[in-house]
Amino acid sequence: MWGRLQTRDRLRKRGLQVESNFPLCGLEDETANHLLVQYSYARRCIVELNRTLQISPQLTDLESLGNWLHKPTAGRFKCPVIQCMYAAPLYNILMQRNSAVWQGSIKHYNKVVQQIKTEVWMRIQGVMPKKVQDKDKDWLRQS
């Protein structure tokens, strides 16, 4: 999945003449790993979500993130919720990158995190099974 993102490093490999630096920080080359895991904005979003979910995975790159997401780390209810919570920031971080490139603006990471929480909460409410343990419902409400 990560190899499909049209980051500048991939565009250059295809022969396109684009700058290689990451447009949001200008310090590193734009790679999927930098955009979604190593960039300070992405890290802040993920730290906030970890705090919300009361988890603390050690994620250093996309490979470790992918491996962690595919390992069942919680119960049958929590695991898909956590996966959804991590898919949402990846999408939203990519959208903020595009907004910075095309509109010259980016939302504060706290607003993005709040948007992610709202989106995920609404999606989960729509598909939540009828038989969910009370402790899982409480965990979700606190998130």
Rank of each mutant, 00 (worst) to 15 (best):
M1W: 05
M1K: 01
R10D: 03
L11H: 06
R12H: 08
R12W: 01
L16E: 04
Q17D: 10
Q17K: 15
E19V: 02
E19H: 08
N21P: 03
N21E: 12
F22D: 15
G26I: 05
L27M: 13
N33Q: 06
N33K: 02
L35Y: 09
L35Q: 07
L36Y: 07
V37T: 04
A42H: 08
N50C: 13
R51P: 00
L53E: 00
Q54F: 08
I55F: 07
S56F: 07
Q58V: 15
T60K: 11
D61S: 10
L62I: 09
S64N: 05
L65I: 08
L65H: 05
G66D: 13
G66L: 09
H70C: 10
T73L: 05
T73V: 15
C79L: 14
P80S: 15
P80R: 15
V81M: 07
V81D: 05
I82Q: 13
A88R: 11
A100L: 10
W102C: 05
W102Y: 15
W102Q: 08
S105F: 14
H108N: 12
V120R: 14
V127M: 13
P129Y: 03
V132E: 02
V132S: 06
D134W: 12
D134T: 10
K135C: 07
D136N: 07
D136V: 05
D136R: 00
D138E: 14
W139K: 10
R141C: 11
Q142F: 01
